[in-house]
Design a protein around this nucleic acid. Structure first.
Length: 216
DNA sequence: TGCCAGGCCGGGT
DNA sequence: ACCCGGCATGGC
């Protein structure tokens, strides 16, 4: 079977079983980017609390958030964990957005995607997954997000060895699939949902997984 | 109770 | 070029 067909069938199997995800839950590209930093190695429920705190404090905008002292910002995002570290990372991103993009992160979306990706990666605290999330979900660019779930599900199904690196994994999906923003969006969202629900690190529930028996 | 969560950086080999 | 310790809260 053609590899693209295999991947699209995998997508359909998850979509049929779970329905559309309607990701990313954010009101603006800026809020999305903030969420991308806050959710690093962290449960989304904790991130929601942190974002609610920022909104409540009226600082969910590039200038006002940057104006907050580090320790005040850290206190507001405490529920998201790693809060001192993430306060610094947010400040790094904000310095870039305010200083180089005139406070408008959406301006990045009008650049060449590889250039936009490199500029995001140059911000300390923005790694490949965070950058790709912002490109895809925040800016609507076709950059596939290859996170820990993608790696786990892929290796369990023998698509790649477990030790495969981030870029290798991303290229596997991007080479196999058409460059389509909506497809990448929903595909990654479904992988996360399968990873949270069935493809667990220690206790996989493979019997009832939407991908059970899908791969040869 | 321990495991897990939509990673990344910096320093050491 | 890899490997590892550190970072931290909250749900199950």
């Amino acid at each position: 079977m053609k590899r693209q067909t295999l991947f699209l069938n995998m997508f359909s199997a998850m979509l049929d079983a779970l329905g559309p995800s309607r990701w990313w839950p954010a009101d603006s590209p800026f809020e999305m980017a903030v969420g991308a930093i806050l959710t690093q190695n962290t449960n989304w429920g904790n991130v929601e609390r942190a974002i609610a705190n920022l909104r409540q404090a009226g600082v969910l905008a590039p200038r006002s958030l940057f104006a907050l002292p580090d320790d005040a910002l850290a206190e507001l995002i405490r529920p998201a964990g790693y809060f001192r570290l993430k306060a610094r990372r947010l400040k790094n991103l904000l310095a870039f957005v305010n200083g180089e993009l005139d406070g408008d992160i959406a301006a990045l979306g009008r650049e060449d995607m590889a250039v936009a990706r490199q500029r995001l990666l140059a911000v300390s605290g923005v790694g490949p997954e965070t950058a790709d999330s912002i490109l895809l979900y925040g800016l609507g660019m076709p950059s596939f997000v290859a996170d820990a779930y993608t790696a786990r599900i892929s290796s369990r199904h023998g698509l790649l060895p477990e030790e495969a690196g981030y870029d290798e994994l991303r290229e596997l999906f991007m080479d196999a699939l058409p460059r389509d923003v909506s497809l990448y969006n929903e595909f990654h969202a479904l992988l996360v949902r399968v990873g949270n629900g069935w493809c667990r690190p220690r206790a996989p529930r493979c019997e009832t997984c939407p991908l059970a028996g899908f791969f040869p």
